[in-house]
Amino acid sequence: MIDHIGIKVADFERAKAFYDKALAPLGARLLMMVPVEYTGGVKVGGYGRERPVYWLHEGEGESEPKHVAFTANSRAEVDAFHEAALAAGARDNGAPGLRPHYHPDYYGAFVFDPDGNNVEAVCHRPD
Results as ranks from 00 to 15, higher is better:
G6R: 12
R51D: 10
G61Y: 01
G48K: 05
V122S: 01
A109M: 02
V9F: 13
M33D: 14
V9G: 10
L26N: 08
L86H: 03
A17T: 06
Y54F: 15
D115C: 06
L23A: 04
R91E: 10
G45V: 10
G116T: 05
E83F: 02
H67W: 10
D11W: 06
L56E: 02
W55M: 06
E58I: 01
Y47I: 06
D113K: 01
A10I: 02
D20Q: 08
A22I: 04
G40S: 07
L30M: 14
Y107H: 07
L23H: 06
K8F: 13
A72G: 10
A87V: 01
K21R: 14
A95L: 08
V44Y: 14
R75V: 02
C123E: 02
G97F: 01
I5P: 00
R125Y: 09
Y106L: 06
A72D: 06
Y107G: 04
A85S: 00
K21S: 12
L23S: 04
G94I: 01
E120T: 02
A15D: 04
A80L: 03
P100L: 13
G41Y: 10
Y19I: 02
V9C: 15
P114C: 06
D92Q: 08
H124W: 01
F70H: 10
A24P: 00
E13T: 14
V111N: 00
V68H: 11
S74C: 11
L56M: 10
V53E: 14
F18R: 07
E64T: 14
D3T: 14
D105Q: 09
A85L: 02
E64Y: 14
A121G: 02
S74F: 07
D127T: 08
A28C: 13
E77I: 00
S63P: 03
E64N: 14
R125S: 12
S63T: 11
H82G: 03
E58Q: 15
H124Y: 02
I5R: 13
R99F: 11
H67N: 09
P114D: 07
F18C: 05
Y107F: 12
